[in-house]
Design a protein around this nucleic acid. Structure first.
Lengths: 339, 339
DNA sequence: TATTTCTCTGCAAAGGTTTGCGGAAAGGTT
DNA sequence: AACCTTTCCGCAAACCTTTGCAGAGAAATA
């Protein structure tokens, strides 16, 4: 029942702790015979080295901290898989937190990760984070730090993103090419920078075509299902001329699809729809939902790789990785070429 | 740039480490004046206590290990949220691993969690786990251990489950009551015990009605999208008399819905569908998908509570918590009353 | 003044590992 | 017989914290 340590083995064998340690790590100084005895007893006793002690010695834990707004958003679940794959290959574990879009919670979690002496932190900021001191504190301590997906322009650090401006710009251009002129944009909460970037891309595409921007077609909604339903309903009520809608997230677009369908709107003939994130459900809808695919798994994997890169090089420069996004055309836009 | 420890503060103030430690923990032995000085300097230096050292002292880390088959399955993402909420309230962190349904990986991860001296382990076994020595090793070490969702009958430990037998039994009964007689069951991989339990419930309901079981209507599929599509296609091809289908997971049911729709089958008139897990997408489908809702978040929260319960009581008895599941009727069964 | 009491602080051990260095024993060389 | 190598192993420090116990100094009491 007792905790088995090197000491246990050493005492049982009548040798010193250091010899046991070296024997288990196959150090050449130790005689084969001794090694065999040690290894055998270790197996018998089911000895597991104490990571805690090792980490204290090395002054860092073999773990990297991950903070995401919500694990259950498919994008983050997928990204975490990517992080996990890279981390596991390096023998690192993941300390995962979710901020639940709460700024205060994000601060607490960062402090906690710092106290745990994580080797690095990977973060997607909460939608309600408007100050950034807590992020600077990470950098003060020289902890490798990577932002992914949700950028924060005020902070300079390594980042893994897609070009949100361009993605929205191109998507809107395709809608324009298909003859849509009353294109709406439905964004996330007001402080979310990637939502703003997408909005900027949307505006640029329209302006470039000489289309006056109708502010009434541009909305913001919080993440809750109720807020989304309400926001979409309002938009459909108040802007009957709407013939295309591009949204900050698939969740919004999915509900827009369902609600529009319920009103008898034909999709895409009456209303074309484009979401963001290419969630698994998109394929299942009727019609299926067009969406901008982000390489979520790769984003996570790249973020993790950046952490290890910073960890290994003594002097590093911040790296900004822009991954390719791609608009996946499905039923909700297929017919749009004909208008 | 240096790591700030109690020693740093002690040296700077010309007092001993123990005094600093006590001052920060507001020990009554320390004079107010000393406390003030210590606290102020600590803040100035942004001192964060080193969890690693504390944990080594206490011989356990303030973290609990979680192993799930895949984080991106909505059920597990949701359950992790529940675990996280409870753990965070207790000041514990989560070490999250995904087995990717791989038995060997599950073993490695358990060893790694043991080495990290986690305070407890919460696990949903992989679909390909058929031996259980690694689970017994957790118990040998007296590490609090809770199985959730995917049971493993050979292991006796604390568990948080739903009654899968009953859930399937009742769902099938409702289909029978609606006049369906050619009801199929599509399960997961062959070793997955909860899939087998559901299958058993399905069989029992049919037999009770005196219906001879047609083995051709009972199938098993692996988790990959391709396997699911193939399995569903085969079933629809080979069993045209099928008028209802109940599946191990929503993912299967969702694809069955889409594929059946593509063949021109009317849902639910020609084919009624019931899935498991009540995933968010179910509501969005056309028709919407009926599904057995499991309280995923609560499952995670309960599992975490059990860990802390075991952690606090010196002698504990295994506890088995059966949470209520509920069939949510939606479009894929609504019409089924009329057959 | 001598003794007791009280207030505040420091010493040292413990937790499990790794690792530089020194040293004992054994064997080999001159 | 004296010396040098080689082979193998142990000592002790370091990582950072908490905490029982002892002790120093001051104040209070007899």
């Amino acid at each position: 029942m007792e905790e088995i340590s090197l000491k246990t083995i050493a005492n049982r064998l009548g040798i010193s702790i250091s010899t046991v340690s070296r024997a288990l790590r196959n150090h050449p100084d130790i005689r084969e015979e001794t090694k065999r005895a040690v290894v055998q007893l270790a197996e018998e006793l089911e000895y597991e080295p104490n990571h805690l002690a090792f980490q204290l010695l090395r002054r860092k834990s073999n773990s990297i901290g991950v903070i995401v707004p919500k694990i259950s958003y498919p994008l983050y679940a997928e990204a975490i898989s990517g992080i996990e794959a890279v981390a596991e290959a390096q023998g690192y574990q993941l300390l995962i937190c979710q901020s639940n879009e709460d700024y205060q919670k994000e601060i607490k979690q960062i402090n906690s990760l710092i106290a745990s002496r994580v080797s690095g932190i990977i973060l997607s900021v909460s939608a309600h984070t408007t100050q950034y001191d807590h992020l600077l504190r990470i950098q003060t301590r020289n902890i490798p730090f990577v932002l992914f997906n949700r950028d924060c322009e005020q902070i300079s650090c390594s980042k893994v993103l897609i070009d949100n401006y361009k993605a929205a710009y191109e998507a809107v251009n395709q809608l324009l090419a298909a003859g849509r002129h009353h294109i709406g944009f439905m964004g996330g909460p007001p402080h979310l920078q990637i939502s703003l970037r997408r909005e900027a891309g949307y505006r640029a595409a329209l302006q470039e075509r000489g289309i006056t921007i109708n502010e009434d077609l541009i909305r913001q909604v919080e993440f809750s299902r109720e807020a989304i339903r309400q926001g979409v309903t309002n938009l459909l009520d108040e802007a009957p001329q709407l013939d295309a809608l591009i949204t900050y997230s698939d969740q919004i677009a999915q509900w827009a699809l369902v609600l529009a369908r319920q009103r008898g709107l034909r999709i895409p003939q009456d209303l074309a729809l484009i979401g963001f994130n290419d969630e698994p459900a998109d394929e299942l809808l009727e019609p299926s939902l067009s969406s901008v695919r982000q390489p979520a798994y790769e984003m996570g994997a790249e973020a993790a790789r950046l952490i290890f890169k910073e960890l290994q090089s003594t002097k590093f420069a911040y790296e900004k990785i822009i991954l390719e996004s791609r608009l996946i055309h499905r039923g909700s836009t297929w017919g749009s070429a004909g208008g």
